[in-house]
């Protein structure tokens, strides 16, 4: 008779528990698609975000008002749906700026002369010395309050992160044996960079950008919460949370439900991004 031995040591179960169920990713992707749709055609999902009804002020969530109403009697759900356009486009634009600039400067540092790298790297270091929010604050102090300066501020503040990752990745790839090896086929330096270095450096960037997008959205919400973004009555998520804060003791929904949507978007981005990241690494590592 074969008797099973107890499992001799109960360490972690390899990487089993690290892989989250696929359903989570599916829900995340579906939610992101919905959010995108809301940003594209908000009218399809919700009514007028500015329609105030003085008779229905600060009403709790109900079948008629899923997320309740705010202090002016506006439907919070309608505002959240319309806010998607503001908040998502701010995040996407800021991420676009930071990824674009980071990519350019990171490659410049990684591929050109040693002194250029030294100068740029010190620059990135110095910029990273500023906390993101403070850097954005400084920029807004100079450029004035407004949506555009909010976007540029976040884009600038997050740029060093991407630049450093790209630079480091460039160095890793440049030193990789397969790049050294390509010398054996007598290709020129430019050919080497185009065929081996660039594709391997660029590969992970979209996924990083996706995870970074979540962070941009959070910082944007934070800054507009401080009143440094789109101004009322614009239904931007951070601004909504800020407006609703004054009524927290009577109507938590006006502030917390828009906030929950921000969290959900960021979680969905992170979950999807990590999943893609794992798949990306999986192709190389498994």
């Amino acid at each position: 008779m074969t008797v099973a031995l107890t499992r001799p040591f109960t360490g972690r179960l390899g990487s089993t528990s690290r892989s989250r169920p696929r359903t989570g990713v599916a829900v995340a992707v579906a939610f992101l698609l919905l959010a995108l749709a809301a940003a594209a055609v908000p009218g399809l999902f919700a009514g007028d975000p500015l329609a105030a009804d003085p008779l229905r002020v600060l009403e709790a969530p109900s079948a008629a008002h899923w997320f309740g109403t705010d202090q002016l009697g506006r439907d919070v759900f309608d505002r959240v749906v319309h806010g998607a356009r503001h908040s998502l486009s701010i995040g996407v634009a800021a991420t676009g700026i930071s990824v674009g600039a980071g990519l350019l400067l990171g490659l410049l540092a990684g591929l050109t002369h040693r002194y250029a790298d030294e100068a740029l790297s010190r620059g990135f270091d110095a910029l990273s010395a500023f906390p993101l929010v403070l850097l954005a604050l400084l920029f807004i102090a100079v450029a004035g309050v407004g949506t555009t300066s909010l976007i540029v501020a976040i884009g600038l503040a997050m740029m060093p992160h991407y630049a450093r990752v790209v630079r480091a990745q460039t160095f890793v790839v440049r030193r990789a044996a397969y790049v050294t090896h390509a010398v054996a086929f007598g290709g020129s330096r430019i050919r080497l960079v185009l065929r081996h270095v660039l594709p391997n450096v660029l590969g992970p960037v979209p996924v990083l950008a996706m995870i970074g997008l979540g962070e941009s959205i959070m910082i944007a919400a934070g800054l507009s919460f401080l009143g440094l973004g789109p101004q009322p009555p614009s239904p931007e998520w951070g601004a909504m949370i800020s407006e609703g804060r004054g009524y927290l003791h009577v109507a938590w929904w006006a502030s917390i439900l828009p906030g929950a949507v921000v969290t959900a978007v960021v979680i969905a981005l992170t979950v999807t991004g990590r999943r893609l990241q794992r798949r990306f690494e999986g192709r190389e590592a498994a």
């Binding site: 074969t2 008797v3 099973a4 001799p8 040591f9």
Partner: peptide, 13 residues
């Protein structure tokens, strides 16, 4: 030594 590794199921007669 009872150290077959994580996730190992060991059996024997």
């Amino acid at each position: 030594a009872g150290l077959a590794g994580p996730g190992a199921q060991v059996s024997a007669d």
